[in-house]
């Protein structure tokens, strides 16, 4: 419960950061990748993800998970174990809580299961995945899934995401909106943005 409260506080604080403009055109995500967007969006970094919206994050939102490393949670706020006191860890007296983590050997099903379990914590209500099929992201083999949940505000949401594991890291972009109106309004835009994703070619001299 206390974890949930601290999560709620973090989300509340995040909600006071102003959004910045993403003009239509090419958008770069540091050294991870680029996309093309046909329309302007509002952008706000949150935790380790990028979030985009048009009318507000509770109405429609695109979220970019760019390179989640092996053994990491989808967002840092979800890593409850990171907050355990070292002394408790030493004496083996840690709270009975585990975080859901990405592992490089995960199958597509497991990644989607990780996604829905993690999103359930963020949304505060149960997120279920409805479809899972093979797909590509930035030309790499991956998967596409659909999901749904009803928010605490009693408004139904639906979403879809496309992901791939590349260079042992998880890249996942998803779009979510209210079942009434907002999801449908910008679903095609989201689709085009995800289609346009390309990985940045990196000098991979690490052997």
């Amino acid at each position: 419960m206390n974890r949930l409260i601290s999560l709620a506080i973090i989300l509340l604080i995040a909600s006071c950061t102003p959004y910045r403009l993403i003009p239509a055109g090419k958008v770069e995500f540091a050294d991870q990748g680029t996309v093309e967007t046909p329309i302007d969006w509002n952008w706000r970094p949150f935790d380790i993800v990028h979030t985009w919206t048009l009318d507000g994050p509770n109405l429609q939102e695109m979220i970019f998970h760019m390179g989640v490393k092996d053994g990491k949670t989808l967002m840092e706020v979800l890593d409850v174990e990171a907050g355990f006191h070292p002394l408790l860890v030493w004496f083996g007296k840690v709270p009975d809580e585990v975080s859901f983590r990405f592992h490089k050997r995960m199958t597509e099903h497991e990644i989607v299961d990780l996604f829905t379990a993690s999103m359930s914590k963020i949304a505060g209500s149960k997120v279920v995945s409805t479809q899972l099929a093979p797909a590509t992201l930035g030309g790499k083999p991956g998967f596409r899934f659909e999901y749904a949940f009803t928010g605490k505000d009693q408004v139904r949401r639906k979403g879809f995401g496309v992901g791939a594991v590349f260079d042992e890291k998880l890249y996942l972009i998803h779009y979510v909106g209210t079942e009434i109106y907002y999801y449908d309004r910008n679903q095609a835009d989201a689709e085009r943005i995800i289609q346009s994703f390309t990985f940045k070619e990196k000098d991979k001299g690490k052997g």
Binding site: S129, T130, Q131, L132, A133, P134, E146
Partner: peptide, 8 residues
């Protein structure tokens, strides 16, 4: 819902 993935 995941039958396409399984068939792959």
């Amino acid at each position: 819902g995941d039958s396409d993935m399984i068939r792959k």
